[in-house]
Amino acid sequence: MLDPILLWSGLINGLLQGSIYALVALGLTLIYGVLHIINFAHGSLLMLAMYGVFLLFTNFGIDPYAALPILVIGMFALGYGLQRVLIGRASHGRDENILLVTLGISIVIENLALFFFQGDTRTIDVPYAFDSIEIAGVFVAIPRLIAFGAALLIAALLWLMIQRSDVGRAIRAVAKEKQGARLVGINVDHIYAVSYGIGIACLGAAACLLMPTYLVYPTVGHAFVLIAFTVVVLGGMGSFPGALLGGLLIGLCESFGGLFLGESFGQIGIFLVFIAVLLFRPSGLLGSRV
């Protein structure tokens, strides 16, 4: 029988890791829910944001948490521009073309990163990286705790924005009925770009919360993107509470899978859960359109 303290630490680690997955998945679920596209560029845009945090810290000494507003605004602008100028225009409304365009964008970003930064892994050295507190016998790094809290907060803010604000109402209208939304005077192209921008802005926030404890390298996005898709499907495409719940579940799944089956084989639990959800409950746990 396993030591209860191991299970307890598995639970905490799973929840903390899961909140990171949820952060990455929040943007993806918005983009999927509104634009109905599978955003292949998600992982590489996260990587880009992480390099942004890295550069701000090393060149200007800006603390990752202080960089959060800069990154969120910058990534929103980038996302808005990408959708308005490139993805929307190049895709001609065909799903397979959107797929190709986002794939092309991710190839470009990843390889430019490889060119500028080589394949080396980079980290930033913040004084509080190893600060930790003890929760019933398990030590927890404070930056990871902050990321956990921020994930909850961001999910709540996004949910509020979608439910209560005018932009949110417009986004929901476009997601439900594009033509109808256009008829009542909503600028559909603008709303698409805003949705994409918000989705990418989430990555900016995720990058700031990740960098104190993570490292960055040009293909770092790969580790997140497949899991983010899993989270999105598990939670229900387009649902923020779903993405949060899905992220935490996947984190637990990975943590306990690793505990019982070993580090690399334990990952299989994630994908088996994913396949089971796709087969038996494809609308996800909290499935509802944005």
């Binding site: 490139l86 225009r89 190049a90 895709s91 001609h92 065909r94 073309n97 190709l100 365009v101 794939l103 092309g104 964008i105 991710s106 190839i107 470009v108 990843e110 390889n111 430019l112 990163a113 490889l114 060119f115 500028f116 080589q118 394949g119 040009p218």
Partner: peptide, 22 residues
């Protein structure tokens, strides 16, 4: 043989191609 740049160009050409040949 600069690592990265050739694949970056490949990706860019892919986007251009999709734009003009949907």
């Amino acid at each position: 043989n600069t690592p990265g740049l050739n694949l970056a160009l490949y990706g860019a050409l892919l986007v251009v191609m999709v734009t003009f040949l949907p």
